[in-house]
């Protein structure tokens, strides 16, 4: 494996995408961020299928920031399929969403999300959250061994 720690951002809203990237940049996180804009694209990227068929499937991101409300394939379904697929079954997934509905929280954790973060409206808080996330998942946290 190569030492580059990438982040996979699954986000359909271009504003949110821009803001998330900005928040990450503001928090001095300079890792590569791969952005995919719906659930199907996210799965293609991770499984190296479809438009990503020429990608090396062993190259996996350090962490996935996953929105729930996604076109085509929803965030929870992406999570479910990831967990069912052995190479990605242990991949750290952070759900990053607007929803605080109990059912989403419950399903998210049931399907094996590693953490659940609500996108704050206040951008200062968002930057703060991004900094914490980056620090934790890219620096502090030891990733699972490759299988």
């Amino acid at each position: 494996m190569l030492g580059k720690k990438t982040i996979l951002l699954v986000e359909d809203n271009p504003d949110d995408e821009l803001l998330t990237l900005r928040a990450l940049k503001k928090s001095k996180i300079h890792n590569e961020v791969v952005v995919v804009r719906d659930g199907a694209e996210a799965l293609d990227y991770l499984f190296a299928t479809g438009s990503f068929s020429d990608r090396d499937p062993t190259q996996l991101p350090q962490v996935i920031l996953l929105d729930l409300n996604l076109p085509k394939v929803g965030g929870l379904e992406v999570l479910e399929r990831l967990r069912a697929h052995p190479p990605t079954s242990l991949l750290p997934v952070v759900i990053l969403t607007s929803s605080l509905e109990e059912i989403d929280l419950l399903r998210g954790y049931q399907l094996g999300a590693n953490s659940y973060v609500r996108k704050p409206v206040d951008f200062d808080q968002f930057v703060n959250a991004a900094r914490h996330l980056g620090l934790f998942w890219l620096v502090l946290n030891e990733p699972p061994p490759r299988v």
Binding site: N69, S98, V121
Partner: peptide
């Protein structure tokens, strides 16, 4: 819960930007 907050994030975030 989901959709009404997204534009607010944009308003706040880009104002801050």
């Amino acid at each position: 819960s989901h959709d009404l907050r997204a534009p607010l994030r944009s308003i706040d975030g880009f104002s801050q930007a």
